[in-house]
Amino acid sequence: MTRHAIIAALAATALGTGIPAARAEFRLGLPVACAIGEECFVQQWPDMDAGPGASDPFCGMAAYDGHDGLDIRVRSMADVAQGVAVVAPAAGTVKGFRDAMPDRLIGPTRQSRDSVKGVECGNGVVIDNGDGWETQVCHLRRGSIRVKTGDRVEAGAVLGQIGASGAAEFPHVHLSVRRDGEKIDPASGRTVGAGCSSGPAFAGTLFDPAAVAALSKGSTAVLGLGLAAAPVDYARLVVEGGPPTPPAGGNAAIVWAWVNNLSKGDTLAFRMTAPDGTPFYEGSSPPVDSSKAAYSAFAGRKRPLAPGVWTVSVDVVRSGETVVSESRRIDVKG
């Protein structure tokens, strides 16, 4: 072997980096057919911290200890009922599937986890993508899977729908990537647990350019924003979605927001402008005491909700800077 060939061989193995050889030959698209940041949202990435802590591939907090894949969620079980397609992230042959588990959200308790022990993936599909690569999608909606073992699928082919089967605390699809049995972070192409990187985002990624563009919107997003006449129950949001806009009247006018992936110390800054254009409310929630995978808050005044078009907004403020902002104009009927 020539000197140049030896150098090339060593470079291909990426020794000591946690990066598998020849990753450039394998590319992934999104595992969903929905608009990231609008219809569906990045909830969690693989945990790149090898210890008891947790860090996403970008040294952020969108991960939990031991998590090995990418979670893309819809807001609530109401969205599951509408049917959101899960697609093959890369071409390959279906290696196996399961499609009979019910869609039901589990709680964070040990008893809830034990109820799906051994079948945490729920309904899912495993695809052999060749050259030792394997992809798996989990938590699909019962009865939605369209493929069977042995089927050849192309990238983008519909596999099923987002659901809440198995160990799902919120409706989502979980994408796992493996090469020769080793778990790989698709954002960086590195072994899960190999450490995060604060360098350029998606350096070494397995994702194709279109997927990178969609996923680059960030992990913190406003899932819902609206008006209410009473405090909003967080537990109902993930089941029913946001409450309908109330009619004019009542005893209170409240703005509410539902946000994912907050960092410790983040605050939500609310504003309400009445139909006549006058400021009605402006204030902030208390700083969150720890990182929150999902969080809701509300604010307002004990005054009847006036008819007309209201403007409401929320800013996610982190270390004094706004990282996410959203506003809505809402027509309140008299």
Rank of each mutant, 00 (worst) to 15 (best):
P102T: 07
L305I: 06
E282Y: 04
G107N: 07
P244Q: 04
G53L: 05
A21N: 02
P89T: 09
Q136Y: 05
P231V: 15
T93Y: 04
N261R: 09
G29V: 02
A11M: 05
T273H: 03
W45H: 11
R113C: 02
P275G: 06
S327L: 05
A12Q: 07
Y234D: 15
G193L: 05
D49S: 12
A155S: 15
A12H: 01
R236T: 15
S285D: 00
R104S: 11
V212W: 08
D103S: 10
G308V: 10
V42Y: 00
A5S: 15
D79H: 13
V84C: 05
A210E: 15
T191Y: 03
V317F: 11
T205V: 10
G132A: 07
V147N: 08
K95D: 14
V288E: 02
T17A: 12
V316H: 09
A50D: 13
V84N: 03
L223M: 08
D79W: 14
V239W: 07
P244E: 01
L30V: 10
A12D: 11
A253P: 05
A50L: 12
P89F: 09
A21G: 15
R141Y: 09
G226M: 05
G29C: 05
G189Q: 14
P307Y: 10
V232A: 13
G199H: 11
L215A: 03
A221P: 00
G130D: 06
A8S: 10
A274G: 08
P307D: 05
F280D: 07
N123H: 05
S313W: 06
A211E: 05
S165R: 01
L262A: 02
H172S: 09
V316M: 10
G204I: 10
S76A: 15
R23W: 15
D331Y: 08
I162S: 09
G250R: 09
T322Q: 03
L10K: 02
I330H: 05
T311K: 14
P102V: 10
I162E: 10
S284R: 08
A35D: 12
V323D: 12
T220Y: 02
A213G: 08
A203T: 12
K217L: 12
A248Y: 08
A62P: 04
A63S: 12
W310T: 01
L305P: 04
P108F: 15
A11R: 11
G320L: 03
V177H: 02
D208F: 15
I6M: 03
V317Y: 06
I162M: 11
T109K: 10
C40V: 06
